[in-house]
Amino acid sequence: MILTGGAVSAFNAQAADEINIYSDRQAFLMKPILDAFTEETGIKVNVVFAKSGLIQRLKSEGDNSPADLLLTSNVSNLSRAVDAGVTQEVNDSVINKNVPAKFRDADGQWFGLTTRARVVYASKDRIQPGEFKDYEDLADPKFAGRICTRKGDHTYNIALIASMIAHHGEAEAKQWLEGVKANLARKPQGNDRAQVKAVKEGVCDLAVGNSYYYGKMLTNDEQRAWAESVNIVYPNQEGRGTHVNISGMAMTKSSPNRDVALKLMRFLTEDEAQKIYAEQNFEYPVKAGVEASKLVDHWGEFKADDLPLSKVDSFRKRAAMMVNEVGYNN
């Protein structure tokens, strides 16, 4: 059962054969996975879907919250849930085996379920193969007036900036961000797909976006031409690798159905659910051995940055401050 808005009262928090989820992941993505879990276990899954505000809702509800699990995108959202005190530790051998250490919290407060790369979309007509290679190139003066991004303080960009701080230190990362701002073709605006559209329209030659949007555009009649106008570039392949982020899960501190919640958490890290995730949203499974969708596989393999996401996220607040300091969105 997928609920929206304030329909929390529809939850039966005490039922031993039910589980209650708060999710900001889109309903169409979660439904086939949760249906498969119900079919296998007989356990009913109730979901409240909201684009924002779920962590605050958990905090406000406190011990009376009916939610067992939080499903969200981006490591920053998971870390915010931990900081808000609404999660609890899970130490489970099955989950720990399926989810690599770099994609889970060292204290067991959250676990990654899928990964997505923060890539650069390069114009097929105006960027030659190999002309752009690394994130550092985004600040190269030769790309002045040729770059499009969404707002710098969006969580996707904050994570990328945080990774630059982690690898280069604050001073060098800030200099880089100032260089990226200087190279922007327009004021930061829109979502990731809007940047690729801008490349198609000749507004810019390079766009920063998440990898799964390439699949979404290629399978959308209106947006296919945008995707076909660009090459997808995985930066830093000759060095540290491309920055990746996750979608993930955390068990709520108040979970009234902990044993059932643990069953679902395990299921979400196993082959069947991981495969559905990959097919539905063009993301990469976190579990080794589970293949990406055929479309994603066609893009080729890439080297991912091995820096643990918990380390990257430790620079999140500094990255957000840096965006304001350089006036990135102005």
Rank of each mutant, 00 (worst) to 15 (best):
S65M: 12
L307M: 15
Y284Q: 13
N330M: 10
E40A: 13
K200E: 06
G169I: 02
D205N: 08
I276M: 09
T242W: 14
Q88L: 07
R224N: 01
L138I: 14
P308N: 03
A171G: 01
V286E: 06
P235E: 11
R266Q: 14
Y234E: 11
N96G: 03
A292I: 14
T269D: 08
A16E: 14
L69W: 15
D107I: 00
I165S: 04
A67S: 08
T219A: 00
A185D: 09
M217H: 01
G85A: 11
V323L: 11
L29F: 09
N329A: 08
S76M: 02
E301S: 14
R118Q: 14
F132N: 02
F267H: 12
C148G: 07
I2W: 04
K187E: 14
E283P: 07
L268R: 08
H168D: 11
S255R: 08
H167A: 12
F37V: 05
Y234M: 15
Y135F: 11
D153I: 00
R266G: 05
R146L: 12
N231K: 13
S65L: 09
A320R: 04
V86L: 12
R318A: 13
L268Q: 14
N183R: 03
D105I: 03
V86M: 10
K174G: 02
G5H: 03
I95C: 03
R118M: 08
V208W: 04
D35S: 03
A288T: 15
V99F: 09
D306I: 06
A166R: 10
S123G: 00
T87Q: 05
R146T: 03
L264D: 05
N91P: 00
V208R: 01
T4K: 05
V99R: 10
V230W: 11
P100N: 06
L113N: 06
Q26S: 09
A292V: 15
